[in-house]
């Protein structure tokens, strides 16, 4: 009887293996597993950022403990700094100048790669495909291509470790296929226990810069409205607060299609601004970021994001001032 059970068990296991081989994971399933793994895993490693022709190597720590998640980056090169993400707050500590910067980022989730939880919402803008398997930092990984369905966004690829479903590498390409920026782990360790204690940043003394700040999920209070957006882009976040070294508020609307984000800024033109510090009108480019600045009545409009120049131009052309004054 027991022999029969063993036989059934072997048959069941073999059927499962054949079934798994016949129905490999889809690109979306792999990405969803990655999103989950990024939330719950404790891991650390060395990560390299290549952006704007600059290479930055950093130590990376991800800690998940009692439903509390923390990301920590420690720079290996100057300027020495430590960047900590606790939930929606990002803190950057500069060791040399002893400067601490605290930013509120409710719409970002990772320094490595930000992938939305609901991938089905992106079907109008992107298609997902497993395009191969490669080793990254000696870890066998799936290669997932995220191909845009129009020319309003960049092409992306993500390498995801087959064993732990953690992102090992992410690359952004322009529409011709040239690499714009990438982030890659050179070594990674996954731990059962948190690699380090969650670092408390709440006790760090900070000056309050929040006076007169307006934040909202909708742009109803903005001095402008965006009449036309490329397919898939949505309004994520609106704020009105001083951005420069003055009290003048700047309206900031963040748009996103899930992967690419675009910011729309509107502020009154300042007569006393030094010419060197103003953004000249027209299209500008820095790495994957394109921006377009132009006058809108007595204000300066700037549309900026990691999207092709045509996208910032399209969004900029759709921005109109509201009738009422800000």
């Amino acid at each position: 009887m027991s022999e029969l059970r063993i036989l059934f068990a072997i048959l069941f296991a073999a059927t499962g293996a054949v079934s798994a081989a016949e129905n490999p994971l889809t690109a979306k399933q792999i990405l969803q597993k990655m999103v989950k793994a990024m939330e719950v895993s404790n891991y650390q490693g060395t990560v390299v950022f290549l952006k704007n022709d600059k290479l930055e190597a950093m130590k990376y720590f991800h800690t998940s403990e009692k439903n509390q998640e923390q990301e920590r980056l420690v720079s290996l090169n100057s300027p020495q700094r430590e960047i900590i993400r606790n939930s929606d707050e990002v803190t950057c500590l500069y060791k040399l100048t002893r400067q601490v910067i605290v930013d509120h980022r409710p719409y970002e989730h990772s320094f490595i790669v930000d992938v939305p939880k609901n991938l089905d919402e992106l079907d109008t803008s992107y298609q997902f495909e497993v395009v191969g398997e490669e080793d990254v930092a000696m870890m066998p990984s799936y290669v997932i291509a995220i191909q845009p369905k129009d020319d309003f966004r960049y092409i992306r690829k993500i390498w995801i470790a087959k064993a732990q479903f953690l992102p090992m590498k992410a690359v952004v390409y322009d529409l011709s296929g040239a690499v714009l920026e990438q982030v890659v782990f050179t070594e990674i360790q996954v731990n059962k226990q948190p690699p380090s204690k969650i670092v408390e940043t709440a006790g760090v003394p900070t000056q309050s810069g929040g006076e007169g700040v307006v934040t909202s999920d909708s742009s109803g209070q903005a001095a402008f409205e965006v009449m036309a957006l490329p397919l898939g882009f949505k309004q994520i976040f609106f704020s009105r607060k001083p951005l420069h070294q003055s009290d003048q508020p700047v309206d900031h609307l963040l748009l996103s299609d899930g992967f690419a984000s675009v910011s729309v800024y509107l502020e009154s033109k300042k007569a006393d601004t030094a010419p060197d510090s103003r953004i000249p009108e027209g299209i500008h480019s820095v790495g994957a970021i394109n921006s377009l600045s132009r006058s809108l009545a007595d204000s300066q409009l700037t549309v900026l994001g990691e999207v092709p120049a045509a996208t910032v131009k399209y969004i900029s052309e759709g921005v109109k001032l509201r009738n009422s004054a800000p």
């Binding site: 500590l93 100048t97 002893r98 400067q99 601490v100 910067i101 605290v102 930013d103 509120h104 760090v204 003394p205 900070t206 000056q207 309050s208 810069g209 929040g210 607060k241 001083p242 951005l243 420069h244």
Partner: peptide, 8 residues
Amino acid sequence: PYAKVTAY
């Protein structure tokens, strides 16, 4: 920085 700045 535009958010909150201090020296520690």
